[in-house]
Design a protein around this nucleic acid. Structure first.
Lengths: 220, 220
DNA sequence: CGGTTGTTCTAAAGATCTTTGGAATATCGG
DNA sequence: CCGATATTCCAAAGATCTTTAGAACAACCG
């Protein structure tokens, strides 16, 4: 440990950057942000092999982002300090911000996204038990299975047209996909509106829902 | 542009992480954080070829971190938005925080770093024109050439013992190296103290000096 | 217009990172 | 102590990224 303490500064920064440069590691960090897990649990939830998970965790440990404790035959990993969690929030917010620029280019094809009157996470929460409200999850069944807004109906974008008939005419629809820059839900909203439905997208997508939810449950 | 808007979320985050995973790109971002530059200037200051600089800039542009404008035959690059600058600050602070953990392990070999009574950047500034003060730059000549504390004497760690004779016995010495987790300056301070000098390290090293200085000049 | 300069594009070589298979380690339960 | 389980270590194959060389572009200058 510590052999690289004398490295040039940018190499040291790059070490942290590298840790954040792999989708698998980011997934693992996100899971660990939700709480301590064993290697096997992480592998399972992230959808990669145990060996690979272990290898990636070694890298995260080398960057000092995670820590572990051993209990019997299992090893439990967690984020090294609360600062890591805070930074991950900054990082994700920043990534969203950067990608939002790209999204605005996409939005030009769809018209102004503000015209869709997106519903905020807070607004959705308050209306969650309104019986006329239908929440559509426009993501893959896998993503849905991994976590979704309570009461949401899974409806992968490819199946939207087929399953339209099942929607009550007078339903108030809120559709979401993964992130704020995902275009599946705005597209769905556009289609639904053309067909006369009262449909709106969820601002920030599932990512924001999830983040807001986690913050709330942590501060309790 | 925008073909990857439907990519899985972690791949999108990884795109930003990748941009931060190369020492060259981090150097370029840091230079751009100081102001607009042409490709050639950047190549020069970062110490890499123009072609490579251009290639790396394309990647930074793909991650939406930098923007450019063309003026005659030159292309001027800059950070895409102020948010990028803010985030780079977070990123560097976070990296320091993480690497400080490693440093504390190193510090165990050197004794408690707090015992060395590090001088803060602010304190050093105020004392900069004290004639009894000697500021030692314990980095490579190249790093010194790229920028140093005004009035500092370049003294690479290998030459410390040889050049000791040149130091006035009653000098008040402040030594610094690159970052807060660099151990060259604490080592030098330890040696100097053993020899009876009044020596202290600079808290945060040159990195912090530089960052504080840039913030100040920007807010003016 | 033709030469020059600054930059980018394309392709390929070199370097690094990711992932996997097989063996090793450590702990628990019998 | 032996077998089973969870994880890590090691080494190699596969994938990706970085860097360079050479050609192409584009804007200026004479």
């Amino acid at each position: 440990m510590g052999e690289f303490v004398e490295e040039p500064i940018y190499a040291q920064l790059a070490r942290i950057g590298k840790a954040l440069s792999s989708p698998v590691r980011l997934r693992l960090l996100d899971l660990l942000d939700q709480g301590e897990r064993t290697v096997e649990q992480l592998a399972d939830e992230a959808g990669v092999t145990v060996k690979n998970t272990s290898a990636q965790l070694q890298q995260l440990r080398a960057a000092n982002l995670v820590a572990s404790r051993k209990d019997g035959t299992r090893v439990y990993y967690r984020l090294a300090t609360p600062e890591v969690s805070t930074f991950l929030g900054h990082f994700q917010d920043f990534a969203e911000d950067r990608l939002a620029d790209l999204r605005s280019a996409v939005a030009a094809h769809l018209g102004d996204p503000a015209e869709m009157e997106p519903v905020t996470v807070e607004q959705l929460r308050e209306r969650l038990d309104d019986p006329d409200l239908v929440v559509l999850d426009i993501r893959s069944p896998e993503e849905y299975a991994a976590g979704h807004v309570p009461g949401a109906v899974s409806l992968p974008s490819g199946e939207l047209r087929d399953k339209l008939a099942e929607l009550p005419r007078d339903a108030k629809i809120v559709a979401y996909c993964q992130g704020p820059y995902c275009v599946a839900s705005p597209k769905a909203v556009q289609l639904l509106r053309e067909l006369g439905y009262d449909a709106r997208p969820l601002a920030g997508g599932f990512t924001r829902w999830d983040r807001v939810g986690r913050r709330a449950s942590r501060s309790r």
